[in-house]
Amino acid sequence: MHKVLKNQPLAEKIFRMEVEAPLIPPNYRPGQFIIIMADSRSERIPLTIVETKGNAVILIYQVVGRSTEKLSSLKAGDPVYGIVGPLGHASEIKKFGKVVCIGGGVGTAVIYPEIRALKDAGNHITSIIGSRSGDLLILKKEIAGISDELFLTTDDGSQGEKGLVTMPLEKILIKEKTDLVIAIGPVIMMKAVSGLTKRYSVKTIVSLNPIMVDGTGMCGACRVIVDNQTKFACVDGPEFDAHLVDFDNLLLRSRQYQKQEKEAHPCRKIN
């Protein structure tokens, strides 16, 4: 059992949870994730480790369905049934030079530890964070504090530039030489970023979020097509070279259980 230490909303339907998982911090590196089960009947769902603090891990998650909703209802002191991790490969952290880091929606939480590590490794960081509207922009202050430059975009223009993250990105790509782009967010966003950087021949990394079960390479639920080969995102990833990823297959695969999920949670909006 793991005790919840804190669980608070950061924005509409986005929560930050601090939960005890004493075995995880010593071997954790940025880019890795956990599989969590809220209670004994829950699904096993993957969430990125945003940071570790003492013997706890910090998670930031968006409520999109039954499992994330269950998590959001937990209070400080409540038990969580199971957490296993850290899973997946760590991000490659070294000095690349000029790096553009793009976080979309809750993907901003996923990319945050990576931005920090890349900054510490001496990179010049330009961050772009985007969301539907201004009140959903998370970790703005934290990311501003560790980025050399920061661009904000919102779909409705309520904060930052009105439009998609690809708009400031394209301006940067035109203006200056970029060594690496990292994009983490909705599949549609990662696909758009990848298409753009391909045109400018800038190496791009994305973190894929397919449906998972075990997270240890045993089931193949998380298979993704990279460079025309089947890879298991949980053990071969979750980060891959964006220009080799079959995003359309990933999009279809992440809708596999849409019907069942709707039945389990009739009011949820499926993007």
Binding site: L23, N27, V84
Partner: peptide
């Protein structure tokens, strides 16, 4: 919930 090789 301990994946040896990763957790420890």
């Amino acid at each position: 919930n301990v994946l040896v090789g990763k957790t420890i």
